[in-house]
Design a protein around this nucleic acid. Structure first.
Lengths: 165, 165
DNA sequence: ATACTCTTGTTATGTTATAACATTTACATC
DNA sequence: GATGTAAATGTTATAACATAACAAGAGTAT
């Protein structure tokens, strides 16, 4: 499996260059959409940027209000359509336990991720683990269940909030 | 770890005696509440029954409308308060990916369950697996994350829907 | 230019959940 | 059995999240 350890840097306190982080994600998104012959329109791109604005999951209505501020009155379907598109393309993830959305750092990889979500600062980190994947598949298979998608969200305290500076 | 294999019987097609299933759950709930000195009031008990009415997760407003039918006008907070109480006591689980609630068959045990939810019939089965638990804990711990709660929901096709009679 | 499909705009509404405050109930104590 | 107190419930309103349905515009292939 690929090494996604850099993702652990995305806990809130990690003082990474987030502007660069977003730029990379947008570039990847453009290439990915081009390769799939789907259109990353201005609206979709802007909404992807807004979702990426932090490593905190953002609600659809947060996106909506930012969008309304900068582009005048915007209605919910505009946002939800873009979010649906981005979800379909694997460019963002939905965090079910928060009704919120977060950028995906490796949209071309498999999408059975694990989210570590801090109950203190609200940041979310996506990680992947072959052992977990395998254990879940084995269990399901033993019970005769055929998995299609999955949601794995762990709430707790992130390293930065455990050891504040 | 305890053997929860009987839970796999709760896929929709399993023609178990559901009346008995509910009765057992209610009895367990009463004993548990008594032992904890918390009150399983009529409203809470009735709402627990309504959640247990099937192995399909039920929405808060489903419960609300049934309750309104049998007891006259009922407002959302009545239902949500009872659901919150039942969640706190571990008597039900919330399925995040469905915004719905389902009875817990073993409220005294640990609550890091895995839900197998059928995309075809909508039934949900709760299972437990030590290997999965351990793999998740290990991963989190390696990243310095301290877990508090977790959500693990696998959507797919249940055995009964794969092999219809 | 035409036809076609995809995308976006717009209005309205559906669904899920909570805030805030009034009232009632359970029950321990006097 | 009256009284104080905490827990539970009733009530009204509204917040937060999401989609249906249909009209209009933009992109593209022929």
């Amino acid at each position: 499996m690929k090494n996604f350890d850099t993702v652990s840097l995305s806990f809130c306190g990690g003082s990474h260059d987030h502007g660069r982080c977003v730029k990379t994600a947008l570039k990847a998104a453009e290439e990915l959409c081009q390769s799939r012959s789907v259109r990353l329109t201005d609206a979709r791109k802007r909404i992807l940027e807004l979702v990426w604005d932090s490593h905190h999951p953002v609600g659809a209505y947060d996106v909506l209000s930012k969008l309304s501020q900068e582009s005048g009155k915007t209605a919910p379907p505009t946002v939800y359509r873009a979010l649906d598109f981005l979800l379909e393309q694997g460019l963002i993830h939905r965090i079910e336990s928060l009704n919120a959305y977060v950028g995906c750092a490796h949209p071309t990889e498999d999408h059975a991720g694990l989210f570590l979500i801090c109950n203190n600062c609200g940041c979310a980190a996506e990680v992947h683990d072959e052992t977990i994947d395998q254990a879940i598949l084995t269990k399901a298979s033993n019970l005769g269940f055929r998995p299609e998608q999955r949601t794995l969200e762990v709430r707790g305290i992130c390293p930065d909030c455990q050891n504040p500076q």
